[in-house]
Simulated assay, not measured.
Amino acid sequence: MQQSQFEKMKNGEGFIAALDQSGGSTPKALALYGIEEDSYNGKDEMFDLVHEMRTRIITSPAFDSEYIIGAILFEQTMDREIEGMYTADYLAEKKGIVPFLKVDKGLAEESNGVQMMKPITDLDETLKRANERHIFGTKMRSVIKEANPEGIKAVVAQQFEIGKQIVAAGLVPIIEPEVDINSKEKEKCEELLKAEILDQLNKLGDDEHVMLKVTIPTVANTYKELIEHPNVVRVVALSGGYAVDEANEKLKENNGLIASFSRALSQDLNANQTDEEFNNALGKAVKSIYEASIS
């Protein structure tokens, strides 16, 4: 782990760009970008197109370390190149942006009001390659839909169990137990989640550091204790399906919470835009998310 990158993640002003749509969500991401499923054949063409999209975002002058401190990548993006450099190296060396890798394999079926992660069978190999590719940290996502104490406890326990394996490999895990923004029990879910996370954090050793990625809470500053916890490098927020303006307004209410947006970052981008139109649209989104993250 590079100490300079650790310091940037701990204290830097800005937000984390989530560019980690995977196989299941890639067709939707491409469709939002103006590329419909009937315009490509098979997964190879699909992943080529999504890499072109991500390359256009990352190489844009609007994708600037003045506003963006980190970026989360999909595994294929990590293994591909931008302008002759592996993506993580391009981010770190050309852009001054800290690279993360999505490592989960998707969600299991809902049980006890939650969706836990599917088994990550090749995690050791993935972490080895992540270190070779100069990745700083990882991200893995679960989803909470109901205020079921047993389900939420299981989600957090699974996240921290795998998180410790990632820490042992020299990387910083982003633990992401997303609370569904449409949950009728969202506030109660967040109260239970906070308690379970605090319990797990308090069991970590002094040298075990994690990051957290959470849904913007219903009650502002719900996660203040997590943000201030000595084992937490940073707490970031997902947009969760909110449009960028709504996500930004909600984020501003939470001191110390910064964005890690995906759809809200790229919602106004289109494959048919000129470079000027594309860069202007991306720049507008980047600056608005940055302002919400430092408020």
Rank of each mutant, 00 (worst) to 15 (best):
E75A: 14
E75Y: 15
Q76K: 14
T77W: 00
M78N: 09
R80P: 10
R80L: 13
E81T: 15
I82P: 00
I82Q: 05
E83I: 00
E83N: 15
E83H: 13
G84N: 05
M85S: 15
M85Y: 15
Y86D: 13
Y86V: 10
T87P: 00
A88K: 00
D89Y: 12
L91V: 05
L91P: 07
E93M: 10
E93I: 04
K94I: 01
K94Q: 15
K95E: 01
K95P: 00
K95T: 01
I97K: 00
P99Y: 02
P99R: 00
P99V: 02
L101W: 09
L101C: 11
V103F: 08
V103P: 03
D104T: 03
D104C: 09
D104I: 03
K105S: 12
G106Y: 07
G106W: 07
G106D: 06
E109G: 12
S111A: 14
S111I: 13
N112L: 09
M117R: 04
K118H: 08
K118A: 13
K118S: 11
P119K: 03
P119R: 03
P119M: 06
I120S: 03
I120K: 04
I120C: 06
T121F: 12
D122L: 13
L123Y: 08
T126F: 11
T126L: 15
L127E: 03
L127P: 04
K128Q: 14
K128Y: 13
N131K: 15
E132M: 12
H134M: 05
F136E: 05
F136P: 05
F136L: 10
F136H: 10
G137M: 10
T138I: 05
R141H: 11
S142R: 07
S142I: 08
S142F: 04
S142H: 09
V143M: 12
I144R: 04
I144C: 06
K145P: 08
E146P: 08
N148K: 02
P149N: 02
G151L: 02
I152Q: 01
I152A: 02
K153G: 07
K153T: 14
V155T: 07
V155M: 01
V156S: 00
A157S: 15
F160V: 04
E161C: 10
I162G: 01
I162Q: 09
G163N: 09
G163L: 05
K164W: 04
Q165V: 13
Q165C: 04
I166L: 07
V167T: 14
V167Q: 14
A168T: 12
A168C: 12
A169F: 08
G170E: 04
L171Q: 09
V172A: 13
I174N: 10
I175D: 10
I175V: 14
E176Q: 11
P177A: 00
E178M: 10
E178F: 11
V179F: 03
V179G: 05
D180M: 07
D180Q: 07
I181F: 12
I181H: 11
I181Y: 12
S183T: 08
E185M: 07
E185N: 06
E185W: 01
K186W: 07
E187L: 09
E187P: 04
K188V: 13
K188S: 10
C189Q: 01
E191A: 12
